[in-house]
Design a protein around this nucleic acid. Sequence first.
DNA 1: CTTACCGTTCGACACTCGTCGAACTATACG
DNA 2: CGTATAGTTCGACGAGTGTCGAACGGTAAG
Lengths: 102, 102
Amino acid sequence: MIELAQPDAKEIVLADVLAALSDPVRLAIVAELHEHREVSCGSIHLDIAKSTRSHHFKVLREAGITWTRIDGVERYVKLRYDCLEQRFPGLLTSVLAGAASA
Amino acid sequence: MIELAQPDAKEIVLADVLAALSDPVRLAIVAELHEHREVSCGSIHLDIAKSTRSHHFKVLREAGITWTRIDGVERYVKLRYDCLEQRFPGLLTSVLAGAASA
DNA sequence: CTTACCGTTCGACACTCGTCGAACTATACG
DNA sequence: CGTATAGTTCGACGAGTGTCGAACGGTAAG
């Protein structure tokens, strides 16, 4: 049940975070994660191939935006809200608000 | 002296703003603009060709991040702080803080 | 063990992006 | 007019990105 592979809070790079959030699909994923606290990758409805889905989750994880926990066959994903808030205060909040109002 | 070509405040798209800010060069430009209020394109020191420089300013302008005023031969550029604050409250502030701490 | 399921990895493809130099436009100054 | 200056536009190039289908790998269930 223990497994991860994402950067430390201090290693999170602003440009990478912004690049990761600049894709509409990933923005939708992040908005969904914000509503559901923690969720398995597959339970988010997206009209894309599963390989593409996997790619987007990887980008979010490597940018330091999400935290992934492996439980059996599934990957449970949630936002690294506290890490991001510590590193870039207010950023995720304003992005989530902007995504919701779009 | 009057001249512009940037989107309305309501037409500013979050993903476009984030994409525009996800480039290190443009992030540096934005940080510089934040310090100097208004500035001519050429007065910002950047180790890139002037065509590349022009490209980055165009991306920022079209994303709705900057406002450009033509005066003679020069283009004076400044952040559209109020528009962005209205559209995505706190976003630019947190990005500027993050860019400064990097 | 076999099957089903969840997700990753691997090319491959089209497209976009950052970068450059060169040519161009337009204003300002002799 | 001629020249200098500030930016833009135009290919062109290499690198990166989003997308897909197909193949693969682990875990759970029969």
